[in-house]
Amino acid sequence: MVNYGFMTIYWRDMIRFVRFKTLLISSLIQPALWMAFFGIAMSASFDRLGASIPPIPGVPEVQYLTFMAAGVIAMTTLFTSLFGGIVLLFDKNWGLMREIMASPLPRDHIIFGIALSGMTKSFIQVMIVMIFGLLIGVSFFAGYTIAHTVVALLGIMLFVGMFSIGFLFFSAAISISMDTPEGLQGIITLLSMPIFFASNALYPVSAFPPVLQAISTVNPLSQLVNGVRYFAIGDNFTTMGIHYVYTPADILLSFTVLGIFAISMFGVAWWRFKSAVVT
């Protein structure tokens, strides 16, 4: 018999997600605000710089706003996922974790349940960012047929899903190991900075110093951004005078890196949960 125990954890976390209205609304509005303020402000200056560089004939040129929209999607997914496990820490402190730990539910189901609900939240947010983006002039799916758009959307969600699951496993692992939300917040803030800025989310990495370039190449966030750009913009475009070409092999590699990341993070979470004692 297949055990759907993780759906219990999922169901309860989703109840909380829709119950706290302020949290729900702010988590949906925040990424849109990034697009609106940072995106529009930066694209005004970046596009002016880019205009001085002669375009490559035959290669479509993409506005900065469109370029960075993929980054905002990645960023939103990153932050939501990093904080996705925090409910476990609250449960540990407020006692509910004892009920769960003393129940027959296998511990890996706690991890899967939390990952699944975190992933769902990311999907919802990504949809909102894309819709909002399209409204303010992001040219995603430009010239796509309906079938192509559907495939592109599925591809994006596949990348978002794999990426978020990795960071949710990670978040669950540290949440079950930490004692205070402050400690967890500290670790997450410390990590989110380099992950976010040493990536190709907001700007091209070609101008980075070599060490930073190396970091950004293996950075899971860069893999996600690659995937989103490939599916939403295309495999061949220029932006700010830089030529981007993605081959299917590149994209498969990026996805594989995300897969390996998720599997190893699950290993970490599994190890932390196995040894967790909650009394």
């Binding site: 219990t8 309860r12 109840i15 119950r19 407020w94 006692g95 004892r98 129940s103 027959p104």
Partner: peptide, 30 residues
């Protein structure tokens, strides 16, 4: 599976309803 527990401290999620608490428990125990 054979035991029921009432813990010393309150182990209820304050932001769930009475029904949800029981439903959650029933699901946890399959």
């Amino acid at each position: 599976e054979s035991i029921g527990i009432v813990f010393q401290e309150v182990t209820l999620d304050r932001d769930m309803t009475v029904w949800e608490i029981l439903e959650f428990h029933g699901r946890l125990y399959g």
